[in-house]
């Protein structure tokens, strides 16, 4: 039976191959990135960075929570120089776990506005994403729309579609409700939303938009880049974005961003990469790859994105999304928001 004789030798071979991978990762002129931002959104940037600087970038993608656990366990022996993720709550949590080192350079300070950076410089926002109201142009009069809170009003009964409470975007939005109001008031808003739901909360933003198009519901909440993707496929889709809370707190925004690992083998390279990512050249690619808003205010948004006009952003300190996340989830679980 060759199973038995082959297995050990193949295993040994595979282990050797994988340890060669490690050896490469340790070389001086390369930076290693753990990223929960998906490969197709970061690879073009890294390729361009290597072209500009000659520094190679190794990356490992994964889910945010899992990568944070892995970094914690790898501790001083980690090979990672940078951790990149979406949602300020995740960045905040990584910072509280002591994964990052403070990085404050002139380049970063001039490229990225301070409210998108950690006060101590532990992490830096690299793109801005807005979550706002999307509505059916056939069945909704935009003058009826105003705020996130207003979607809890009974006039939207049976007309609302929301994303699942298990998604980080929903958690951050609810965290902002708790921050701006109180737990009680936020709880009432959630109950109102749940009562108005036309369908069980959806797993994906794209499902919400499909549901509105097909008439299952009339309004919903989505991240704007999903809307951008939809109109790229179907320019005539009878949906429009509405900037929420313009007369009150502003549109709920979040960031994707990165921080330099405390025990980075190549801190210098990591800082260089971070600065490069904040540069005008990189920011244009970074934001437009995913139709987000650049964090660098000197860089113009993508054409489609700018066509939706300017809007007032919620200026809540983004660390709050992290601090209040557990409360937000508890509240949603109690109010039966699936």
């Amino acid at each position: 039976m060759n199973i038995k004789t082959w297995a050990p030798s193949t295993l040994a071979l595979a282990l050797t191959v994988s340890s060669i991978g490690i050896a490469q990762a340790k070389s001086e002129d390369s930076v290693t990135v753990y990223s929960s931002r998906k490969e197709h959104l970061i690879k073009p940037l890294f390729v361009s960075f290597t072209k500009d600087t000659g520094i190679k970038v190794m990356y490992l993608t994964g889910k945010s929570g899992a990568l944070i656990e892995r970094l914690k366990l790898e501790g001083k022996n980690t090979k990672a120089d940078m951790f990149m993720t979406v949602d300020a709550g995740n960045l905040w949590y990584a910072a509280t776990q002591g994964l990052f080192q403070a990085v404050q350079t002139q380049t970063l300070e001039s490229n990225i506005p301070s409210h998108l950076r950690d006060p101590k410089g532990l992490w830096t926002g690299l793109s801005v994403r807005a979550r706002t109201i999307v509505y059916s142009t056939e069945r909704v009069n935009p003058t009826d729309l105003s705020t996130y809170e207003n979607l809890a009003d009974s006039k939207w009964a049976g007309r609302l579609c929301l994303r699942t409470s298990k998604k980080i975007y929903t958690k951050s939005l609810v965290a902002s409700m708790i921050y701006h109001h109180s737990k009680n008031r936020a709880g009432d808003i959630i109950s109102g939303w749940v009562n108005n739901l036309a369908a069980i909360p959806n797993a994906k933003d794209s499902h919400i938009m499909n549901a509105i198009v097909s008439g299952q519901c009339d309004v919903g909440l989505v991240n704007t880049y999903y809307f951008a993707r939809l109109i790229a496929q179907n320019p005539n889709v009878p949906l429009k974005l509405f900037w929420a809370n313009q007369d009150t707190t502003g549109v709920h925004v979040n960031v994707s961003g990165a921080g330099v690992i405390k025990y980075a083998p190549n801190t210098k390279g990591a800082i260089k990469l971070l600065e490069w990512l904040s540069s005008a050249k990189a920011q244009a690619i970074y934001a437009s790859l995913n139709k987000e808003y650049p964090a660098n205010q000197n860089v113009a948004s993508d054409e489609v994105v700018s066509s939706w006009g300017l809007f007032k952003q919620d200026k809540m300190n983004l660390a709050q999304t992290g601090i209040l996340q557990a409360d937000a989830v508890k509240l949603m679980q109690i109010k039966g928001y699936r």
Partner: peptide
Amino acid sequence: TYLLRPFGWDTLAVQVYELSAEGL
């Protein structure tokens, strides 16, 4: 796989997930 794979050991399943999680 997603959590434990070393560098350079992306699988087809990882690729499916990464793309579909972004709605692609």
